[in-house]
């Protein structure tokens, strides 16, 4: 006899319970134990929490927990078709861009990539020392034959961070201008930021095929877009009220104000957001190797799967080097913006 029988008896629901009892429902561990015939004396210490499973024992009409998980799974699979139908074409360009960029980075010989990256670093930071440092790091990676993997990782980060900025900045601007939108968006951002990255991958795997680049592309973008959205919103809201008032008093239109005052003055915050977005893309691209993202993460994964300690550690070092490069370069660009806006 189950613990909570009395409850349903008292409520007069016994008939309803028995009518709902299905013999072919999934069997729970407790049922199996009960079948062994070992009926134990129940004391107050054994009182189970009135969970779905223990209520099901007393009343067959109540679902078991595994019905719930099954239901959620089935529900997701049921809408999967529709979601896919909508999302697949919508996100297809992401696959193309990722494929294209990856093959471009792979196809370009090192003696072209190196100068190109050096120029990019110089334009962003205006610092020859940093250019030297970055070149040394890349040379080290190339020297230990991790160049190809590093370039794949860079290519993915390049695409995803770029798209994060492209989507995130306008979202942040819209949030800063509309309090209601901000109230709706912030919980979503909180959720995206607190969900462990692994959790994103689960629905995505069912939605798209694992071999498609957009699968990890979406995972990275969802994870890394949060800081740039947040800091754009914050940055624009923090723009000096006096300057905004001055802009109004000179008869600026909304767009003159946005592009001439608000975005430039929010730029230090936006750049800080871009820096974080890039760092988070790097973190996610490593995890995304689980779903076939190429790059250094694949080597780390090999290290874990095959217990190849050396492979794992060396590629980990490569990731650290990439992280330092990306952080330094974006911070240097941020410092330049800050210096120009000192008040």
């Amino acid at each position: 006899m189950a613990t909570y029988d009395f409850l349903f008896d008292a409520l007069g629901l016994r008939a309803w319970c028995d009518s709902g009892k299905s013999a072919d429902g999934p069997v729970s561990m407790a049922d199996l134990l009960a079948k062994t015939g070992k009926t134990t004396e129940t004391t107050i210490w054994d009182l189970p929490f009135p969970s779905l499973d223990s209520l099901n024992d007393a009343c067959g009409a109540i679902a078991q927990s595994r019905d719930l998980t099954k239901g959620v799974g089935d529900g997701f699979l049921a809408i999967k078709g529709v979601l896919r139908f909508v999302l697949d074409p919508l996100t297809q360009p992401l696959s193309w861009i990722l494929d294209g960029t990856l093959s471009a980075f792979e196809a370009a010989p090192w003696w072209i990539m190196f100068p190109v990256l050096m120029v990019v670093v110089f334009v962003a930071s205006k610092s020859l020392r940093l250019v030297g440092f970055v070149t040394a790091c890349l040379a080290l990676l190339a020297f230990i034959d991790h160049y190809d993997h590093a370039m794949q990782t860079l290519a993915i980060i390049f695409v995803c961070a770029f798209l994060c900025v492209l989507l995130g900045v306008p979202i942040g601007i819209a949030m800063s201008r509309n309090d209601r939108l901000q109230r709706v968006t912030i919980p979503i951002l909180d959720m995206l930021q607190t969900l462990p990255p692994f959790v994103y991958l689960i629905p995505l795997i069912f939605l798209f095929s694992v071999t498609e680049p957009k699968l990890y592309g979406i995972a990275i973008i969802l994870y890394a877009i949060v800081p740039v959205v947040r800091l754009t919103d914050l940055g624009i809201r923090l723009v000096d009220k006096d300057v905004i008032e001055a802009a109004d008093s000179f008869g600026m239109t909304d767009s003159q104000k946005l592009f001439g005052v608000q975005i430039p003055l929010a730029l230090p915050n936006i750049m800080a957001g871009v820096n974080q977005t890039i760092m988070m893309s790097l973190a996610m691209v490593v995890i995304a190797s689980l779903v076939s993202a190429p790059g250094l993460g694949v080597l780390v994964l090999r290290g874990i799967r095959n217990l190849e300690l050396g492979v794992g550690l060396v590629s980990g070092l490569g990731i650290v080097l990439l992280a330092i490069i990306l952080d330094r370069v974006t911070k240097a660009a941020l410092d330049r913006v800050n210096a120009a806006q000192k008040q």
């Binding site: 006096d242 300057v243 008032e245 430039p264 003055l265 120009a340 806006q341 000192k342």
Partner: peptide, 10 residues
């Protein structure tokens, strides 16, 4: 003309 100048720093 404003008390805190309100110039565009950039």
């Amino acid at each position: 003309v404003f008390q805190k100048f309100a110039l565009l720093p950039h």
